[in-house]
Design a protein around this nucleic acid. Structure first.
Lengths: 225, 225, 225, 225
DNA sequence: GATGAATGAGATTTCATTCAT
DNA sequence: TATGAATGAAATCTCATTCAT
């Protein structure tokens, strides 16, 4: 398991398909400003009204531009939603985890650090995560993207688990891939309860419980390196 | 932990609030038949088209009645969706778990049996679960119901975990409530990947991995009673 | 002018056309009771919801009978409205005016007494009067009935005015018919402001002002017989 | 009593509340034209079909635009009806009364002139007045507006009557406010019979009778200034 | 007589998208 | 680039009336 961490539910942040289809960036500085204003406005509106209940006119009103202008930059709601996600994605994927001293860090320390980073990032983006759920539920294409990305993350974490098993540090009875998926899902679901549903458990408790469960589940030795 | 099991994500099946607002049941047998036909038709249509893309007229067409008849029994799409869920709820909450011989069952056996029952029930209702996600994401009332029910289940499982801790069978470092929520979430997320996103892992692997992780996480002794 | 009085806005109470079209009265006592319950319920509903916003089902619900039963007695909303008016009509046309001693009563006394009786009757039926306005405004047939009845009353009052003019007691410059209509209208409009619009002026002031204006307008001598 | 006149039932022309709720006026000339076309079309349709029997699609058809366009300018039928009334209001409130030579005009002359102006304006707007009746009867908000405006006019006329009383020209036994309301109501009712119910009395007779009754009622001296 | 479920035409309303200015 | 009026297809919902029981 690398310092990069396991990104417990990276699968929730699709690298939004079809970058090929993206129109070329605005030619002028004014255009860039307008486009950015629209994306920012869209995030505000989506978080306030949800994806499905939001109207394009609300977005343009929030961005203080006309409805026509919208179509200069985006082909529709789906496309601007992708743009909003793209912006959030960076935050979720690079959540500013503290660099751990590899000399001094056990696997459990790494898990704890990346869990903490994940919860913090989820909290910042909770409303968006909810909306992503909504869209994924309704749109098979989106689900497919989510599925693929999910598997990619699972593969990465599975390799880390495999590595620990090979080094005799983790339970060899577990299927690495399935376990990776299960444990990532566990953490993402905890974040969902806490922040999307608003249970608002204290961060430290979330981190502690998730880390202990994760470590126990793999039968990791807390002290091993 | 009782034979009743832990119902890993019972929280996903809100006991749909406001039974007060329900119109009184049909007075005649004919009325009851029509109402039932509408609910059945609605499930078909929701699973085929999703909640948001479904139209009332599709439901009445499927039920072979007029649009007016729909409003004799339901005030709108939301209300018939509640009725559909209510019907599915029974299946999810009483998933026909095999009665285990108490003499011969370890706590882990109970966990395994209820996980298996949950995965089977989820598979039967996967499309509906997806739709519930979609609706919950967009509707604060629905989220609140889900949150309340989630907490009720967590409390029940937490008591079971506490009991195991008190008997010296489970890790005492864990907060029972948080652990209960986390592990239930883990199982529900596994089911989501497998059946809602269509990864379609073999049932036995799902059951085995989830049970092992659960047992490990609580540091249960596989052989203890 | 007879003791019968001038019925200031008798024209508002059409003798509801087409009694010919009325179905024959219920054959049984039970039928009579049901019919009466429906008429009473209709008045309640019309006064509560207005004519146009009332639904037949509200009426049958109020009368505690089924929708089908309604059609046993009435052909539709218009017909039951006529029945409601018919019942109220008696009150408006025979408002329980005190019998005045002809020996001791001046024309002004008679006017005063009938004005008072009219205001009292209007107050009792204010909501219905409003509804009658609504229906008359929307239904040319109803307007025609109102117009005919209005003219009949005006004719009667005009004869009384003519009589006073002939006896040298009233202003001979006035056209009796036009004056009759104008003064009746004045009183009815006062009642409308007071009771239908809810200004709720004291009854005595209404009576006093209307009577004084009426007497002045005709240049009646308060003391003449 | 000023040359402004008494506007005998100004209360029938509500200054239609809630200008606050009005959407902002069209930004472009084209928009202003479309909005005006819709208001004109609505008047045509309302007068032809009545308020309740009119459909939005008839209005848009008459205005030669799409249904969607309607909602760019109005939130519904009620709002466009207010706009129609607002347009008619100007006509009713400033009915183009001839400027009288103050030197040469008695109070009765002023009354006569304003009565005549009122009858003429009512005739032009008779259908609309009928519709206003219908709406006011069914809508408490509309009634309240009518009541308030009615009182404002009554106050104005009451001051004029008080003035005449103070100058010794009018009957001091009358309550000015009540008399003002009664006499205004009388004139409005005459106009209603004549034009809304279609009795179609000659204008000169209406004016003469109303003015004589009004003058008599106040015991005005026809020759005083 | 009484019941109440079933009907279905028709009205209102929404909003993504286009396009002339 | 930017504007915002115009579009119109589609969906929801109502309720008087019928008729089999």
């Amino acid at each position: 398991m690398t310092t990069r961490g396991h990104a417990p539910d990276g699968e929730d942040i699709p690298s939004l398909a079809d970058t090929s289809a993206l129109r070329q960036p605005p030619a002028t500085a004014r255009g860039a400003r307008t486009r950015a204003a629209l994306v920012a406005a869209a995030r505000v509106v989506f978080e306030r009204d949800g994806y499905l209940d939001s109207r394009l006119t609300d977005i343009t009103a929030e961005a203080a531009c006309s409805t026509g202008t919208f179509y200069t930059y985006f082909s529709g709601k789906e496309e601007i939603f992708q743009a909003v996600l793209e912006a959030a994605q960076h935050d979720m994927l690079h959540p500013g985890m503290p660099r751990l001293d590899p000399e001094d860090s056990s696997p459990v320390d790494v898990i704890e650090a990346s869990n903490r980073a994940y919860f913090e990032a989820y909290k910042r983006n909770a409303k968006l995560m909810l909306i992503l759920d909504q869209v994924a539920a309704g749109d098979p294409d989106f689900r497919e993207v989510r599925r693929r990305r999910s598997r990619a993350f699972a593969d990465r974490n599975a390799r880390a688990i495999k590595d620990l098993q090979d080094r005799g540090l983790a339970d060899r009875d577990l299927d690495p891939l399935m376990a990776a998926r299960a444990l990532s899902g566990m953490v993402s679901r905890m974040a969902y309860y806490a922040y999307a549903l608003g249970e608002d458990h204290p961060l430290d408790e979330l981190v502690e419980t998730s880390t202990t469960l994760w470590a126990n589940a793999l039968k990791l030795d807390r002290n091993a390196r």
